[in-house]
Amino acid sequence: NLYFQGLKYMVPGARVTRGLDWKWRDQDGSPQGEGTVTGELHNGWIDVTWDAGGSNSYRMGAEGKFDLKLAP
């Protein structure tokens, strides 16, 4: 699974964008943008601060869902 392989790169400072299971509307800005991981992966959740200004926790394994992917 590509998403599980990418988890080791989901570290503080990593750049991310919305992924396969995104369901959080425009939390990442409008139009959709990139963000920066600000915390360690914990119980399948990870913290992100978006360039647009907001921050929140997103699923990276929790509930079998992956809200994020590494930015290109």
Rank of each mutant, 00 (worst) to 15 (best):
N1D: 15
N1V: 10
N1H: 14
L2V: 12
L2C: 15
L2Y: 11
L2H: 15
L2F: 11
L2D: 15
L2W: 11
L2Q: 15
Y3C: 15
Y3Q: 15
Y3G: 15
Y3K: 12
Y3P: 15
Y3R: 11
Y3E: 15
Y3A: 14
F4S: 11
F4M: 12
Q5I: 10
Q5S: 12
Q5N: 11
G6S: 14
G6H: 15
G6Y: 15
L7Y: 09
L7K: 08
L7R: 08
L7N: 08
L7V: 11
K8M: 11
Y9S: 09
Y9I: 08
Y9W: 10
Y9T: 08
M10A: 05
M10T: 03
V11M: 09
V11C: 15
V11F: 09
P12N: 11
P12M: 12
P12K: 13
P12G: 07
P12E: 12
P12V: 12
G13Q: 04
A14V: 10
A14Q: 09
A14P: 01
A14R: 07
R15V: 03
R15H: 04
R15F: 03
V16M: 01
T17P: 02
T17M: 13
T17Q: 12
T17N: 06
R18D: 00
R18G: 03
R18S: 04
R18H: 05
R18W: 06
R18A: 06
R18M: 08
R18F: 08
G19K: 06
G19M: 06
G19F: 06
G19C: 10
L20G: 11
D21G: 04
D21S: 05
W22F: 06
W22S: 04
W22A: 05
W22Y: 07
K23R: 09
K23G: 07
K23V: 12
K23Q: 13
W24R: 04
R25Y: 12
R25E: 14
R25W: 13
R25F: 14
R25S: 14
R25P: 09
D26I: 06
D26H: 08
D26F: 07
D26P: 05
D26C: 12
D26E: 12
Q27S: 07
D28C: 07
D28F: 04
G29Q: 06
G29W: 05
G29F: 05
S30F: 12
S30Y: 12
S30W: 11
S30I: 14
S30T: 14
S30A: 11
P31M: 08
P31S: 08
P31Y: 08
P31L: 08
Q32M: 12
Q32H: 12
Q32K: 11
Q32S: 14
Q32N: 14
Q32A: 14
Q32P: 14
G33V: 05
G33D: 07
G33W: 06
G33F: 06
G33C: 12
E34D: 08
E34Y: 14
E34R: 13
G35W: 02
G35L: 02
T36V: 10
T36Y: 06
T36S: 08
V37H: 01
V37D: 01
T38C: 14
T38E: 06
T38M: 11
T38K: 08
T38H: 07
G39S: 14
E40C: 15
E40R: 11
E40Q: 13
E40L: 13
L41G: 06
L41D: 03
L41T: 06
H42G: 07
H42K: 13
H42C: 15
H42I: 13
H42Q: 13
N43R: 10
N43I: 05
N43K: 10
G44N: 02
G44M: 03
G44W: 06
W45V: 03
I46M: 06
I46A: 03
D47P: 12
D47L: 14
D47T: 14
D47Y: 12
D47R: 14
V48R: 00
V48E: 00
V48G: 00
V48I: 06
T49R: 11
T49D: 09
T49C: 15
T49Q: 12
T49P: 00
W50F: 01
W50Q: 00
W50P: 00
W50I: 00
D51F: 03
D51N: 01
D51Y: 02
D51C: 04
D51H: 03
A52P: 01
A52M: 11
A52N: 12
A52L: 08
A52Y: 12
G53Q: 02
G54V: 10
G54S: 10
G54F: 10
G54H: 11
G54I: 10
S55L: 09
S55P: 02
S55H: 11
S55T: 15
S55R: 13
S55Y: 10
S55K: 09
N56R: 08
N56V: 04
N56I: 04
N56L: 05
S57A: 11
S57P: 05
S57G: 06
S57C: 15
S57K: 14
S57F: 08
S57D: 04
Y58S: 02
Y58F: 03
Y58I: 03
Y58H: 03
R59Y: 03
R59S: 02
R59K: 01
R59W: 03
R59Q: 02
R59V: 01
M60N: 03
M60L: 07
M60W: 08
G61L: 02
G61A: 00
A62S: 07
A62F: 14
A62K: 04
A62Y: 13
A62E: 03
A62R: 04
E63V: 04
E63R: 06
E63L: 08
E63D: 12
E63W: 08
G64Q: 07
G64D: 09
G64T: 04
G64E: 07
G64N: 14
K65T: 04
K65G: 05
K65Y: 07
F66S: 03
F66Y: 10
F66C: 11
F66H: 04
F66N: 03
D67A: 01
D67H: 02
D67N: 00
D67Y: 02
L68M: 01
L68G: 00
L68R: 00
L68I: 09
L68T: 00
K69E: 13
K69I: 12
K69V: 13
K69M: 14
L70F: 15
L70Y: 10
L70K: 05
P72N: 14
P72V: 12
P72F: 13
P72Q: 13
